[in-house]
Amino acid sequence: VTVHVDGVEYDFDNPEEALKFAKKVAEDKNGTYEVHGNQIRVT
């Protein structure tokens, strides 16, 4: 699973970890996250 944040890609073997990371980053920057299959984009 790849999490995209501001043009940087973070790869996770564990989808739950990826989702947790995306949620935290989105909260920290008052943004949102979208899941597209095995890609998660934080905006």
Rank of each mutant, 00 (worst) to 15 (best):
L19Q: 04
L19M: 08
D28P: 03
N14M: 06
I40L: 04
V25T: 09
V8M: 12
V5F: 10
V8K: 13
V35Y: 07
T43P: 04
L19V: 07
T32F: 13
D6Y: 06
H4R: 09
V8G: 05
V5H: 06
G31H: 06
K20W: 06
I40E: 01
K24D: 10
F21A: 03
T43A: 09
F21H: 05
E16Y: 08
N38C: 11
T32D: 08
A18K: 02
V25F: 07
K29I: 15
V1I: 13
G31P: 02
A26V: 06
K29G: 11
H36M: 14
E34Q: 09
E34S: 07
N30R: 08
L19G: 02
V5A: 05
K29T: 15
V8A: 09
H4F: 14
E17M: 06
I40T: 01
V5G: 01
K20C: 14
T2W: 05
Y10R: 03
V42Y: 00
K20M: 10
F21W: 09
R41E: 08
K23W: 04
N30L: 08
T2G: 02
A18T: 00
V42K: 00
Y10N: 02
D11H: 15
A26I: 06
Q39A: 10
K24N: 09
L19F: 08
T2R: 10
A22Q: 01
V8I: 13
Q39M: 12
F12L: 02
P15E: 14
G31A: 08
T43N: 12
D6S: 06
K20V: 07
D28G: 11
F21Y: 07
F21G: 03
E9D: 12
N30P: 02
V42H: 01
E27M: 13
D11P: 15
N14V: 06
G37I: 05
G7H: 05
A26H: 02
E16A: 08
N14Y: 06
V8Y: 11
V35P: 03
V42S: 01
G37S: 05
L19I: 11
G37W: 03
D11A: 15
H4K: 08
Q39T: 13
V25E: 10
G31M: 12
Y33A: 04
Y10H: 08
H4P: 00
N14E: 09
K20Y: 08
P15I: 15
V3L: 02
T32E: 09
F21E: 03
D6F: 07
P15F: 15
D6N: 14
Y10A: 02
N14I: 07
V25P: 00
G31N: 03
Y33C: 10
R41I: 15
K23R: 09
E16M: 07
F12N: 00
E34A: 06
H4V: 15
I40H: 00
E9N: 10
N30C: 13
H36G: 05
A26E: 02
H4Q: 09
E9V: 15
T2C: 12
K20A: 14
V1M: 14
V1L: 08
